[in-house]
Write a protein that binds this DNA or RNA. Structure first.
Lengths: 112, 112
DNA sequence: CATTCATCTGAACACTTGTTCAAGTATTCC
DNA sequence: GGAATACTTGAACAAGTGTTCAGATGAATG
């Protein structure tokens, strides 16, 4: 006789339903991943008030323009930021309002 | 005479205020990072309905119990999950309601 | 008390990632 | 056109990450 009557089959079937498609999970993970690097996260935070050019972002972060440009490309690919050219400058701004919500909720998590 | 009257100094000062402390940024990045791995994200998704033991989680994900155990430790360290021992089994469950909100919002981002 | 079950752990490995450096494009100014 | 500015790109490198494997732990069972 078992002390604990734990039904593996039921639990497993139930959990499997919560998972959703592999494709969705990977896309979700990618979204979190793009915000998981301090440099990229700082870029997003810096852009919450107003659009900035690459030089400004690099200055704010204390990073090279090259490093910032590499990360901006990634952020653009995942639709977190969009760009606007004006003469020699390229201005970047946030492309999706949901991102700020994500950061706000994550903040409440870390402060418990 | 400049064609574009872009004030670097003002933009930089403004953006710097949005950044917050280095400590907070790193903690935020860590929170996103823990959800950025498909295996860990699946574990969290699997636990949204009910608590599960390590064997069940491994079965649902199609991963080894060892791999799952390693990731559970990380999830526990960052307070995403908590554990409850019952005989030989260790049952894991979500430790923070905010995580589900985080996933929900990220979902709206990827579906645009 | 030896065995089995459920989970954990550490080391090793292949793989990924972010930065740097140097060179490239594109635009403006003289 | 030539020089300067603003940004981008690709290759290379060091550092970090997730999995596997083998072995260890702890609790229940006979």
């Amino acid at each position: 006789m078992k002390a604990t009557a734990h039904n593996h089959d039921h639990a497993i079937r139930s959990a499997r339903r919560s998972l959703g498609s592999e494709k969705t999970v990977v896309a979700l993970a990618e979204t979190f991943k793009v915000l998981s690097d301090p440099t990229r996260l700082k870029i997003v935070l810096a852009l919450t008030r107003e659009e900035l050019c690459v030089y400004d972002i690099a200055e704010v972060l204390g990073a090279t323009e090259s490093a910032v440009s590499h990360q901006l490309r990634l952020l653009k690919t995942l639709r977190l930021v969009k760009q606007r050219k004006e003469g020699k400058h390229v201005f970047y701004s946030l492309d999706d309002d949901h991102i700020e919500d994500l950061i706000r909720i994550a903040r409440t998590h870390i402060t418990e």
